[in-house]
Amino acid sequence: MSFVRLAQVSRHYGEVHALKRVSLEVAEGELVAVMGPSASGKSTLLNVAGGLDLPTSGTVTVDGADLAQVRDLPALRRRAVGYVFQDLNLIPSLTAAENVMLPRELDGVRTRRARAESLAVMEEVGVANLADRFPDEMSGGQRQRVAIARALVGDRRLVLADEPTGALDTHVSDEILHVLRGRADAGAAVLLVTHESRYAAWADRVVYLRDGEIVDSSLLEQVR
């Protein structure tokens, strides 16, 4: 069943047509990668899918709800959507675990439970041993993984990742893709934007975007 669905979505910024009638669905348990050169509309597509930006025309449905009709969009975004970006800034005066807990505490979850949730996701991402370190006591790869834990904490059924590996070494990037793949295998819908084919290859389906349009997509037979 598709968890996020874009139907004939266009997004114009004045004269610039960033997306042109794009239709795309991501099912629960599926990892879909969007590839394309810079300025092809990849990030716009991701922002529209997660309700960070609204389409000029067309509809975006998340978990059955039309985003144009949702009354409290920020609440839906906080509850159901995890965002992973290239430069995720941690708060320097908080420890890793406190950084990861933060979104849950903002959601009104009690401290004890928020801490338990944060340690669980840090374990999943492989940074449980860094819980009490401050950001300036970690390497770049470690900071990115803590930031990813923060993006995933709680029950995020939709994960949106925009070039999540940034300038990290390839083997660290592989670990990050491993985490995203694991989330999909556990039932989340994951949409990944990347310009690197080696990371797109972790996906079930790869979509190519060119000048705001989907030009072709390849589907690997499901043989898991």
Partner: peptide, 20 residues
């Protein structure tokens, strides 16, 4: 070019699966 790219991507997906 596009046909080749789709085929090469499928190969990469299979290799990545084997790596996992």
């Amino acid at each position: 070019i596009q046909a080749q790219r789709a085929a090469t991507m499928r190969t990469m997906q299979e290799l990545t699966r084997a790596k996992r």
